[in-house]
Amino acid sequence: MNDVIIRRITKAYGEVTALRDISLTVSPGELFGLIGPDGAGKTTLFRILTTLILPDSGQATVCGLDTATDLKQIRRRVGYMPGRFSLYQDLSVEENLRFFATVFDTTVEDNYDLIRDIYVHIEPFRHRRAGKLSGGMKQKLALCCALVHRPDVLFLDEPTTGVDPVSRIEFWEMLGRLRRQGITILVSTPYMDEAARCDRIALMYAGQCLTVDTPQAICRSFGKPLYKVCSDRMYALLGDLRAYDGTLSCYAFGDSHHLTLREDRSGDTEALATYLGGKGHTGLRLTPIEAGIEDCFMAQGKEER
């Protein structure tokens, strides 16, 4: 029995196809991540699962209930946190929480054990208006409001976008604790580094699902030697690496470039070093590394393109 089943869902907005034939399943108690850049279709998928919009074709069930027909039952059993901050900015922290508790016909006290870990972070500000909270605080409050009725499935649409790095880490720790309480969580994020914290992830790109697996398996499936390359002139290095005839792919990754070589040339790093030396690069460092989610995403996205 799966908590969320998505079968061949397609959704278009006029000319733009937001979702193309997506199929996924999420098991009970799983922390499932939808990973992809803006415009990948993550929000659309969430809205279909939370009964807010209807797909053009395909079918989805949540807790065994059809999203097209059983919307009333589904709406009692899920928690939803939209991508945009969607609480009442002119109500205080406490008022927001109490309001959403009554809307779901429950009280804050009844489910306090579930939200306590999160609520303690914002409790000192409970009389402050929600609009005056910092980004991280807002997300914690929104999570509390989405949780206050003890949902079976929690949908979090980009909960860490626009949140500082420390709060992001805290937020994911909270999700981990919630998962241990048995709540199924679907979370979307454009940050690849967060993917490793999920049980399973789906890499999404342009309305399509590239891969669904555990983060570890996806990284293992990369299948090619990967090198991290640095030199004193990083910008020129990227162009030179891409111009190199043995290069399969090369992407800029923050402080280094990630490089894969063509199969017939792999392992031949000596030749590459000579080539780069000839281009006048100094301080060259070339280290083999394990592939991360982002490397996999770039490689798979390239195949799709």
Binding site: T51, R75, Y80, L87, F104, D105
Partner: peptide, 10 residues
């Protein structure tokens, strides 16, 4: 965006 949250409620 609060309508979105209200709609996904009983």
């Amino acid at each position: 965006g609060t309508m979105e949250v209200l709609l996904v409620s009983p």
